[in-house]
Structures are given as C-alpha cells and as structure tokens.
C-alpha cells in the first residue's frame, strides 16, 4: 500500500531549481533511500515533505492527506530526524523526549511512560537524567531519533542519520533503523553513504541536480547495470601464454588475462563454469577460486548518475564518519 505519493515536486529559489519535478512513491513498511551527493536536493525534498518549506509546485499526499494544503494534519503522522540534532541542550534526555511528546498533545502520564520506553529501547536508559549537552554525538543522534519516534509516526524521515558519527555508533544507529522498520515503521532515509543505502534500503532513488535519475530495488538497479556476466578465476600460475588458446577455445566470450595469476571471463549470457574448469585441468593449472563479479551499488550509482568516484570519496571523507 502506498503511504506517500509525490508528484512533480519542484522547489525553486529565484532562478535556481533545487528540486526539479520529482516523482516517487513510498510503500508502507519499506525503507526508501534517497541517495545523492551533497547539494543534490535531498534536504530540500525532505523539508518540503515535512512542512519546513513550501513547494514551488507539485503535490505530496501522505495516507490520503494533502500535505501542501493540510501540513499540520500530516505532521501528526510523520516523525522527523534532521541532519543535526535539534533538541534542547539545557534539558536532559528524559525531559527532551517528554517535551517532544507534549508537542503532539500527549498527556503527562502517557508521555513520561513513552519517554521511558524509548530511552530503554534506544539503549539510553542510564543517561536519561544527563543534560543533552553532555551527550556524545552518537548518543545525541540516538536521542534525536527517539524524539522522532515519540508519537509513533506512520513514517519516519531520517536526514543523513549517520553523518559525522563514529563507526560504532553508526553501526548501532543502522541497527536501530532496521529494528524500527522491522517493527512496522516506514522509513524515508536520505544519505550520501552508498553502502549504508545498500545495507538498509528496500528501494533507492538516485537524486542528482534536483532530479531523480533512477528508482528501483537494489536488485533492479544492479540488474540494469549488469549488462554482462563476469566470472573471475584465481589460478595457481600466471597464464598469459594461454590467452590465445583460451580465446580460440571459447569464441563467444571476452577473456582478460590478469597479471596476478587470474582470468576474467565476460559474457552476455550466464557463464557455465565446467568447460573452463576442464580447460584449466587439461593444462594442469590449479584453480583456487572462481567467483561471479557483480557491480557494486557504487558502480551502479556512478554509471547511472555520471558522478565520478572521486567526488563521492571526497564527500565520504567530508562526512568524518
């Protein structure tokens, strides 16, 4: 069932178009990833979806509610975790959660019970009385996610949830996201970490220059990029002298002999390993390993968007994870 439908969504600032006629849907119970480099339009999109900015044009429907006309009605159903923690430094973890619950009209007893539950669920129960300003970055992010979940939203918007966080906390946050989703929360996740999107998301949309250039499940995105089948053999010896023989023996295949005692077979069809194994056996060459080479999501992203690996790497380094 579709929970969020976005049609021709556009945001312009003067002559600059940050989001350009974007269309997508999010199904109930899925994690939808919005993947793109910095400045691609991810945060501008999330701001329009959550009511922090007004679309220049287009439509957003959340569970049948028109978010452009009735954003306050829609905001009851959504949870938001911004890219930077925006809780109150002076208040402790428990007070922050309890205050956030009050913004959704929850009565005192109910909001205090819910705050306690979430602190426990997010592994912060020992720190509930600590002021927010004394939290580590990872703890701050976890509490901000808990605050986004305080009113049991139908959909949770997570904007770059692991950016600027150390590896261990990033791992814990990814686990939390998976658990929240397993418990039934639909998640909209923006990230510029490809491996994070690959690990967490059911479907991914690539956004570049304010436009969605591709949407699909990981399998769909991979299969489209994988125009050929590649099998790589790791051999005992270097076999450059056999390249011609191999090419003559297997005319339908493109064969690369690798420097490090390996052979790469390219084919538009699925590669049957047995004829190759027999060939190496006949030539008394021991095969240590044979593996199917699949393109990574990073390669797919580069192929689809035309954005170089260098730029992505720079952004990853910029993320200071």
């Amino acid at each position: 069932m579709t929970i969020l439908e976005v049609k021709k969504l556009t945001k312009s600032y003067g002559k600059f178009t940050a989001v350009d006629s974007v269309d997508f849907t999010i199904e109930q119970g899925e994690i939808f990833g919005f993947l793109g480099p910095n400045g691609a339009g991810k945060t501008s999109t999330i701001n329009m979806l959550t009511g922090l900015s007004r679309p220049t044009s287009g439509a957003i429907t959340l569970s049948g509610v028109d978010c452009v006309k009735n954003i306050k009605q829609a905001q009851r159903r959504i949870g938001i975790v911004p890219d930077e923690s925006n809780l109150y430094e002076e208040m402790n973890g428990f007070e922050n959660l309890s205050f956030c619950a009050s913004l959704y009209g929850m009565a005192k007893a109910k909001r205090e019970r819910r705050a306690g539950e979430l602190l426990e669920e997010f592994g912060l129960d020992g720190t509930g009385k600590k002021p927010f300003k004394a939290y580590s970055k990872g703890m701050k992010r976890k509490l901000t996610i808990a605050a986004g979940m305080i009113h049991d939203p139908e959909i949770l918007f997570l904007d770059e949830p692991t950016t600027g966080i150390d590896v261990e906390n990033a791992r814990q946050i990814r686990k939390l996201i998976s658990t929240l989703n397993a418990n039934g929360t639909t998640i909209f996740l923006t990230t510029h970490y490809i491996e994070e999107a690959e690990r967490l998301c059911h479907r991914i949309g690539f956004i570049v220059g304010g436009k969605i250039v591709k949407i699909g499940t990981i399998a769909e995105l991979m299969s489209e990029a994988q125009r050929e089948n590649i099998v790589q053999f790791a051999l005992e010896n270097e076999v450059s002298s056999l390249k011609e023989t191999l090419s003559n023996e297997f005319p339908g295949f493109t064969i690369d002999v690798l420097d490090n005692a390996g052979v790469k077979i390219h084919s538009p069809e699925t590669v049957n390993l047995m004829p190759f194994m027999k060939f190496f056996d006949q030539h008394r060459i021991t095969v240590h390993e044979a593996k199917i080479i699949r393109p990574s999501l990073e390669e797919v992203f580069v192929k689809v968007t035309g954005i170089g690996m260098d730029k992505l790497k720079k952004e990853k380094e910029g993320g200071k994870r």
Binding site: T50, K72, Q75, C100
Partner: peptide, 14 residues
C-alpha cells in the same frame, strides 16, 4: 540558531 525552533515548526501546532 540552534535549530530547536524547527522542532516546534514541525509539530502539528497552529
């Protein structure tokens, strides 16, 4: 400045 005001703008309050 600290962006905590965003939390109020994002809440379902008139």
């Amino acid at each position: 400045k600290s962006r905590s005001f965003e939390r109020l703008l994002l809440a379902p309050i008139d």
